[in-house]
């Protein structure tokens, strides 16, 4: 069976809510009705057939041929199957996904992987601010699964993260891992100001020492670490990184002592 493919006709003239186009939601829709699903966010209310040429029938594998930074909420709440976007996406890609795989071959907007609970979200390009972070009023951000940004991420990457593994490979902006509750945030390529700001628990793993830390982080030695070895092997084996991140005896800053204080920033020395 060929993947259910939505080929973009032209750049959408309005922001789109693509959350109805997931395997689970489409399973309850008659094939002929798919074209009538409303995606546009303006009063015009563009439908699937206004925007895309639809082909293929395998609901478990959805492909968007062509993307746009107006593609919001791609793969929201995904519980099974795969979604691939050949292009960019807008805000909240993979938000609250629980399982399955989402691959964004271009860039993603803000709140990518927001509050995801499981599965794997892979962004080949850059991601916006608040990677995995909660929306206003929500208590926790990323809550499980694996999120990989092959490019750069904006500010507040891993904001209020609680569980899972998030990796940013070409650096990220300020406040990486800010307000982390737990979980693991991996950043190679450098972090901006104040990583781990107000983190309670959790691990931020870096390929180099952070440039500017909050003064409430304290230096915590660098003994040999089996955890670093196991983590390094996992990151390489899982295809997240090409080479080991931390090395045999990474340095550690403990904090943020302005709050709970049992978080850590581990970095290759």
């Amino acid at each position: 069976m060929k993947a259910l493919t939505f080929t973009l006709r032209e750049t959408p003239p309005e922001r789109l809510d693509l959350s109805p186009l997931t395997p689970e939601k489409l399973a309850s829709v008659d094939k002929r009705e798919i074209g009538k699903i409303r995606l546009g966010m303006s009063k015009r209310g563009l439908t699937v057939s206004d925007l895309f040429k639809v082909s293929g029938s395998d609901l478990k594998t959805i492909v968007f041929e062509g993307g746009s930074e107006r593609f919001d909420r791609v793969g929201t709440g995904l519980v099974d199957g795969t979604i691939r976007v050949v292009g960019d996406v807008g805000a909240q890609a993979g938000r609250q996904m629980r399982a399955g795989l989402i691959t964004i071959e271009g860039n993603a907007g803000p709140h990518a992987g927001s509050c995801m609970r499981g599965g794997r979200l892979e962004i080949m390009g850059n991601a916006g601010d608040h990677l995995g972070g909660p929306l206003a009023g929500e208590l926790a951000g990323m809550n499980g699964g694996v999120m990989i940004v092959r490019g750069r991420a904006g500010a507040f990457a891993g904001d209020r993260m609680r569980r899972g593994v998030a990796a940013v490979l070409k650096g990220c902006g300020e406040y990486a891992g800010g307000r982390m509750i737990a979980g693991t945030l991996v950043v190679t390529g450098g972090v901006g100001r104040l990583p781990g700001y107000l983190m309670r628990r959790g691990s931020i793993l870096l390929d180099r020492a952070p440039q500017e830390l909050s003064p409430s982080f304290v230096e915590c030695g660098a003994p040999d670490s089996s955890f670093a070895a196991v983590m390094d092997r996992y990151l390489v084996a899982d295809g997240i990184l090409k080479r080991p991140l931390l090395g045999k005896a990474p340095g550690k800053f403990g904090g943020d002592n302005a709050v709970f204080g049992t978080g850590e920033i581990l970095f290759r020395r």
Binding site: T184, S203, D224, S225, S226, F227, V230, M231, A237, T262
Partner: peptide, 25 residues
């Protein structure tokens, strides 16, 4: 004693316990 750290990744769950030569994984 409260300083132990739980880590879950790659489908496995580990505990890291601080000891005098670093951590017991």
């Amino acid at each position: 004693d409260g300083w132990q750290v739980s880590k879950k990744f790659g489908g496995r769950h580990y505990w890291r316990v601080p000891v005098m030569d670093g951590e017991f994984l």
